[in-house]
Computed example of a mutant assay.
Amino acid sequence: MSAFTVARNPVAFRSLTTNVSRGRSSVAAKAGPNEIVGETAFWTSKSGQAMRGTAAEYEAAKEAGDTYLASTATGVLPEWAAAAGADSTLKYSLAEAFAFKTPEGANFLASGPELMNGRAAMMGFVAAAGAEIATGQTISQQFAEAPFGVLLTFSMIIAGSLFSYTANMEAPAAGPFTKEKELLNGRAAMVGMGIMLAYETVKGSALL
């Protein structure tokens, strides 16, 4: 997470619109016709709101974890915004992403394995429950019918999660879908999947 470009000296703006687009997030930062004096930073908050303030205000927002993307405006790039355009200066190795411990400074609330297992469990639980209701097949029967599709889906989830985790990139909250709720839903899905598998192993029939 970093700031955008900035003006150290008074700069007159006629009209400036900066569009930032990363993934599914698109934010516009605007500077009016007024004169800007001193260091002024432009950034995007976690909620996707275009922000403008001083270098100190940007640093305070960053410390509070309320920054997402940097933008670019004409002007001189100060030292405190040297990493403008990046989500984070911290990157992680595959070993750190697979470790059962959240790396220091990570933009994620959970370790890599918990995050990946949670995402896979959410997808698997919804798909398995839907198929059980529609066909009456157990999870093992569903897997036996389409093992390649199941493995490919989970491989893509893991690969996508690894890409964002090693780069320490975090998607902004989309309405009610926050990282806290993703973690909670992922844990619930893992428990739900475990219950379904245990029941079907003992009973030999679909739970739903």
Rank of each mutant, 00 (worst) to 15 (best):
residue 163 F to G: 08
residue 13 F to R: 08
residue 3 A to N: 04
residue 187 R to F: 04
residue 147 P to G: 00
residue 169 M to G: 10
residue 39 E to G: 04
residue 208 L to R: 04
residue 83 A to Q: 13
residue 84 A to V: 11
residue 147 P to E: 04
residue 35 E to Q: 12
residue 63 E to Y: 08
residue 197 L to C: 11
residue 45 S to G: 05
residue 108 F to H: 03
residue 131 A to N: 13
residue 21 S to H: 12
residue 55 A to E: 10
residue 164 S to E: 12
residue 201 T to S: 11
residue 28 A to P: 13
residue 17 T to F: 06
residue 52 R to C: 10
residue 139 I to K: 05
residue 200 E to M: 03
residue 153 T to W: 03
residue 190 M to S: 11
residue 179 K to V: 05
residue 25 S to D: 14
residue 157 I to N: 02
residue 45 S to V: 00
residue 42 F to A: 10
residue 116 M to S: 02
residue 51 M to W: 01
residue 193 M to A: 09
residue 112 G to F: 00
residue 17 T to W: 03
residue 94 L to H: 14
residue 14 R to D: 15
residue 25 S to C: 13
residue 56 A to L: 06
residue 93 S to T: 15
residue 159 A to H: 08
residue 37 V to Q: 15
residue 39 E to A: 09
residue 207 L to S: 08
residue 202 V to T: 12
residue 26 S to F: 07
residue 106 A to T: 01
residue 187 R to G: 04
residue 52 R to K: 12
residue 156 M to A: 06
residue 126 V to Q: 13
residue 154 F to E: 09
residue 41 A to I: 07
residue 206 A to W: 00
residue 182 E to N: 07
residue 94 L to P: 13
residue 144 A to Y: 05
residue 152 L to N: 10
residue 99 A to N: 05
residue 52 R to L: 13
residue 127 A to E: 10
residue 86 A to G: 12
residue 150 V to S: 06
residue 117 N to H: 09
residue 164 S to M: 14
residue 150 V to T: 10
residue 114 E to S: 06
residue 37 V to D: 15
residue 184 L to K: 15
residue 66 D to E: 08
residue 176 P to T: 07
residue 11 V to D: 09
residue 165 Y to V: 01
residue 50 A to P: 04
residue 81 A to W: 02
residue 1 M to Q: 06
residue 66 D to L: 01
residue 45 S to K: 00
residue 158 I to Y: 05
residue 175 G to K: 04
residue 187 R to V: 07
residue 144 A to C: 07
residue 183 L to F: 07
residue 5 T to A: 11
residue 17 T to Q: 14
residue 139 I to E: 10
residue 56 A to W: 07
residue 89 T to L: 14
residue 177 F to G: 03
residue 17 T to R: 11
residue 104 E to L: 09
residue 104 E to K: 11
residue 112 G to Q: 03
residue 116 M to R: 04
residue 122 M to R: 03
residue 50 A to H: 01
residue 174 A to V: 15
residue 9 N to F: 12
residue 69 L to Y: 04
residue 207 L to M: 11
residue 198 A to Q: 08
residue 131 A to I: 02
residue 187 R to W: 03
residue 154 F to L: 14
residue 67 T to E: 05
residue 65 G to M: 00
residue 39 E to R: 07
residue 194 G to Q: 01
residue 175 G to V: 07
residue 194 G to K: 01
residue 190 M to C: 07
residue 126 V to P: 06
residue 53 G to E: 02
residue 196 M to H: 03
residue 33 P to L: 05
residue 185 N to V: 05
residue 133 I to Q: 14
residue 153 T to M: 05
residue 44 T to C: 10
residue 57 E to Y: 02
residue 85 G to Q: 01
residue 83 A to C: 13
residue 53 G to I: 00
residue 41 A to D: 11
residue 87 D to A: 13
residue 43 W to V: 00
residue 152 L to Y: 05
residue 48 G to Y: 02
residue 186 G to K: 02
residue 174 A to R: 14
residue 137 Q to H: 11
residue 124 G to T: 15
residue 7 A to P: 10
residue 84 A to Y: 08
residue 97 A to G: 04
residue 54 T to H: 02
residue 8 R to V: 14
residue 145 E to M: 12
residue 12 A to I: 11
residue 104 E to S: 13
residue 158 I to S: 02
residue 7 A to D: 12
residue 122 M to K: 01
residue 104 E to C: 09
